[in-house]
């Protein structure tokens, strides 16, 4: 992930990377608890990332679990660098596998948005009216995202949410940078078209 687009300060990022690499080395020596510390450090982030690509909690959880299995199996292939990005790439690939299966067997997207108990995290929009608007907006956006071809959705999510740049997305999805750009631009237009009935939600 490009540092300028990634959240967090660079010092903490470097320290975190050092810890990650040390844990990888320990795990390579056969210490399972070291690997599980890696899991604990990254599972929230990876689940959030995968959930935006696979809008079904169980399937997203399966994809994340499969990603950690794959990471453990291929720990020796880690060539240094950013562990978080490496795990992210594995998770995105696992999510894409799930998406291909979903395309053959569609499921109800984002069932959590239908659940009244679901609430967005408390933030600046503390007023009930703003919160209600945020929930509506998220629900509409999530459904519109799910209506996109998953290639376009992946590119948009990886770029807008996860902060990868064009080249990184091209590497993850194994397509050219031009294809990634095209998917993002056309996907944004398609997203706007899908959100036409709810457009006012985004213009407030």
């Amino acid at each position: 992930m490009t540092d300028s687009r990634a959240a967090g300060n660079p010092g903490a990022e470097t320290e975190g990377q050092g810890i990650d690499r040390a844990l990888v080395e320990e795990a390579l020596r056969g210490r399972l608890d070291a690997f599980n510390q890696l899991v604990a450090r990254h599972q929230d982030h990876l689940f959030a990332q995968v959930y935006r690509l696979v809008p079904d909690r169980d399937q997203a959880a399966d994809a994340v679990q499969e990603a950690f299995f794959s990471a453990y199996r291929n720990l020796e292939s880690f060539r240094g660098g950013n562990v978080r990005s490496w795990l992210g790439r594995i998770a995105v690939n696992a999510a894409m596998d799930i998406q291909r299966a979903r395309r053959r067997r569609p499921a109800q997207p984002y069932p959590e948005f239908e659940d009244d108990s679901w609430q967005p995290p408390a933030g600046t929009e503390a007023e009930p009216e703003s919160q209600a608007l945020a929930i509506e907006r998220s629900r509409a956006l999530a459904q519109a995202l799910d209506s996109l071809p998953f290639e376009q959705r992946n590119c948009i999510v990886l770029f807008d949410v996860d902060g990868y740049d064009y080249a990184e997305i091209a590497g993850i999805m194994r397509v050219s940078i031009g294809t990634v750009k095209s998917r993002i631009h056309r996907g944004r237009l398609a997203l706007r078209h899908a959100l036409a009935p709810d457009r006012e939600l985004f213009r407030g």
Binding site: D44, Y51, F68, E112, P120
Partner: peptide, 10 residues
């Protein structure tokens, strides 16, 4: 988009 909490540990 709001972040969903994970349903289980991995």
């Amino acid at each position: 988009l709001p972040v969903q909490s994970r349903p289980r540990g991995f």
